[in-house]
Design a protein around this nucleic acid. Structure first.
Lengths: 116, 116
DNA sequence: GTCATTCATAACCATTTCGTTCTAGAAGGG
DNA sequence: CCCTTCTAGAACGAAATGGTTATGAATGAC
């Protein structure tokens, strides 16, 4: 799990951490506010935040004794970019390829195919 | 890690498994072919395939004694759908907000600033 | 039936992960 | 300075992860 992309996917693999990210879309929050929805101790949430910070998914700042977490969505863009390389694949397998196979079964004219 | 989305993200968190998926874009392959690029034993690759299958990212079939793995990209579409909810955040933070801040700084300081 | 090929499973080990409780430390308010 | 508030860290344990080697099981060839 040495690279950044692996860290991002690993961070997203936990439902608690995904819920924290969703909460942060509504604005910055301190640890107590982020921990409130979960049946979980405060140190447990603090460590989830540490994982999110290591993945670059949040940044943190101080306001008095509180530490505010702020959503940083750029790594999510990177993850989306990786996934986009497979987009043609799930589209093709459900649209183009099935239709192509259906046409090839009807006739065997090899003239009009799209090799891309 | 009870839900499907968590399983998909967890599967993608491993570079070996991502490489296996990338290989499968070029066509189905048996375990030996998938294991070849890695300095890793065959049972280790078999267990990676088991993780990918549990996440719904591959399906498997037999041909003689071989077991062929086939890419199933639909869960990647689901993951992309989840990530799409955050698209406005990385776009906003890199287009609108940065430009706004740059313009606000230009009103006071006409020169170029690099606060990094 | 016998054998070779291909892969999964079992048993084991080291490390990481995710939770706990208890305690320490940083930042202001009085 | 003292006290409260908020959060991080230490120490611990259970379970999951990712690797190994050794072995067993399914399939097709002879």
């Amino acid at each position: 799990m040495t690279d950044q992309l692996s860290a991002v996917f690993a961070a997203l693999a936990d439902p608690t951490r995904r819920a924290i990210l969703r909460r942060l879309r509504e604005g910055d929050a301190n640890v107590a506010e982020l921990a409130a929805p979960f049946a979980m101790s405060q140190p447990a949430v603090s460590r989830h935040l540490k994982v999110l910070e290591a993945a670059g998914l949040i940044s943190r700042s101080r306001r008095a004794t509180a530490r505010l977490s702020h959503l940083e969505a750029t790594p999510l863009r990177d993850a989306t970019t990786w996934l986009a390389d497979y987009r043609e694949y799930w589209e093709e397998s459900h649209n183009r390829l099935d239709e192509l196979l259906a046409r090839l079964q009807d006739t065997d004219n090899p003239g009009e195919e799209d090799p891309s």
